[in-house]
Amino acid sequence: MLFKYEVEGGNFSKAGFASGEIKKILKQINIDAKIIRRVVVALYEGEVNVVAHAVRGTVVADIDDKQIYIRIEDEGPGIKDIALAMKEGYSTASEKVREMGFGAGMGLANIKKNADWLNLSSKVGEGTVLEMKTFF
């Protein structure tokens, strides 16, 4: 099953829409609640990254009986140093974003912790692609 959602850069009020929808779908197909929570934590953080840093993005989720594969692709500034971005506590978020309680440099670390497989690639000035898999 393939699902697609749009994510709007800068619009925090819509952050969490895709994760909410995916949560409903996984519940309907009786995936274990702990696994659902891991998936949605990772996806929510991915959505927030697009909202906080990019112009726009898309979330594509592919669900079968063994796994969920999620691809979050955005048009945005990209990530110059991926290893540094993965480091807990490192963030380039704006002051406004930090005031909301985001941008503490925990997002990618949370994603890594909650996904079974992760791939992050980026082109500076073009955008970022985050792929992750969680096995059921």
């Binding site: 009020s13 909301m100 309680g101």
Partner: peptide, 16 residues
């Protein structure tokens, strides 16, 4: 928390 904006509900709901 002291956060009052909409995203607290996304977090609260996803984490139940």
């Amino acid at each position: 928390t002291l956060q009052t904006h909409k995203n607290i509900m996304a977090v609260a709901s996803l984490k139940e």
